[in-house]
Amino acid sequence: MATEVQGTEAVMDEGEGVRRRDFINIAAVSFAGVGGLAVLYPLVTQMSPSADVLAQATTEVDLSAIQPGQAIKTVFRSQPLFVRQLTEKEIAEADAVDASSLRDPQTLEERTIEGKKQWLVTMGVCTHLGCVPLGAGEGENKGEYGGYFCPCHGSHYDTAARIRKGPAPKNLVVPEYQFTSDTAILVG
């Protein structure tokens, strides 16, 4: 191949030859660049969650033992998950608020599954800086609005786990989930 290239170059005039040479050098360097970028791909993706971590990405929760007014703390994707059965009173309190006046406007309907309004499923991760709010356990401080209270920087969440007071910018996140039966949900 090399001799062929040189053979054709010999008959070309000087300017042509120079341009062609530059082209080959540029092409070679570009190929090296593309190769270098391609190598980055596995080096970057290796840090993403591995297959075993992704496989654990769903959690089943049994609801049968949770009484109205009670909540449980479980684990979803290695983070705390709050599952609460609201009382009639708590639902009424949540509905009484004008959603548009809130920092993160959402109604209780939007945060629960249709027909299962009493089941409030949220991440137990404060949207401020990621602490675990209190209020899921028996006798814990539920804050001024009767929902959750984050002790780190004093964020108060109401009975629909919406941010009402304090530094947190958003309501507690509602993960994707579905009811697999009347008394069980599959989160994730």
């Binding site: 290239v5 040189q6 040479r21 080959i24 050098n25 092409a27 070679a28 360097v29 190929f31 391609a38």
Partner: peptide, 19 residues
């Protein structure tokens, strides 16, 4: 396949520079 192309180009570039 990529490396073969790159190596052929590298060889041609090498020959050019040393021409």
């Amino acid at each position: 396949i990529f490396l073969l192309f790159a190596t052929v180009l590298a060889y041609m570039s090498y020959q050019n520079i040393w021409a």
